[in-house]
């Protein structure tokens, strides 16, 4: 018990130190308040804004794009990854295409997406999906192709038809790997949706940051950044909870 408390204390220390350093830079006059607002002011502003409808609207816009893109990436990634793992013909096509597409910085495609899909939701959602797709696809593929042969044999001997093996054995057995991919994909989605909104948008958290930067409202610049960090943490811990529930039978990695 006290060990966990100690660990938590140790973990809070650098965050506290970080905030203390931030505050002292201002208190001792190294950084002018116009460039670096005091942490108190930033958190106060965040607290004030959190329940205003404008701010909630921005968060909703960001979350909508994030979830839409992430959901598309999960569905496509799992389906294509599984298909490539079980079918050599699909694998022969998917593997080289992924090899070419995966290392391309997807954000460079954003101008093209703007031109093809317009400046509204569609281009941002597509960019999020394109970026989150590959880690999910790849970890699904590796997870599914490494399912222990004898699990499949055991199920077949127990009378499972070949067509059901995919859903009864391969998918559940690959679940740890799939969820790892989803976790990476989720963080990427957070990052990408914010960046896309910064580059061109009329709403969303990223747009708030750019707006504030244009008018040199430094306090308002920090608010969306802290918000996206919190959102990332919350979503990550939700996914972690889901993972703990779904993988309750699996040994710890």
């Amino acid at each position: 018990m006290s060990a966990t408390v100690n660990k938590a204390l140790l973990g809070i220390t650098p965050i506290a130190l970080f905030i203390a350093l931030w505050q002292s830079l201002i208190s001792f006059g190294y950084a002018p308040v116009t460039l670096l607002p005091p942490p108190g002011a930033v958190f106060l502003r965040l607290g004030q804004q959190l329940f205003t409808s404008d701010f909630l609207h921005e968060i909703a816009a960001t979350l909508f794009r994030l979830f839409a893109g992430f959901a598309i990436a999960v569905v496509l990634g799992v389906v294509i990854g599984l298909a490539a793992a079980i079918s050599p013909a699909i694998n022969a096509v998917v593997k080289p295409v992924v090899r070419v597409l995966a290392p391309i910085p997807k954000v460079a495609l954003y101008p093209a997406l703007l031109l093809i899909l317009g400046f509204d939701h569609a281009s941002k959602i597509t960019l999020v999906a394109a970026d989150a797709l590959f880690p999910i696809l790849l970890s699904t593929y590796y997870g599914a192709s490494m399912v222990e042969q004898k699990l499949i044999w055991s199920a077949m001997a127990a009378g499972t038809p070949r067509a059901q093996i995919l859903f009864k054995v391969v998918l559940p057995a690959a679940m740890p790997s799939i969820l790892t991919g989803c976790r990476i994909g989720l963080v990427i989605s957070c990052i990408v949706v914010f960046l896309a909104e910064m580059i061109t948008s009329t709403d969303g958290l990223g747009h708030m940051l750019v707006q504030a930067a244009r008018t040199f409202q430094t306090v308002d610049m920090f608010v969306p950044l802290i918000t996206i960090s919190m959102l990332g943490l919350i979503l990550n811990s939700l996914l972690h909870g889901l993972r703990t529930y779904l993988l309750r039978g699996f040994p710890e990695v």
Binding site: V187, C190, I191, V192, F194, L195, M198, G206, L209, V210, A213, T218, M221, F222, L225, I228, S229, L231, G232, L233, L235, N236
Partner: peptide, 10 residues
């Protein structure tokens, strides 16, 4: 989860 490129303006 903080997009590092978003720190650019700051």
């Amino acid at each position: 989860p903080v997009p590092k490129a978003a720190l650019m303006p700051i």
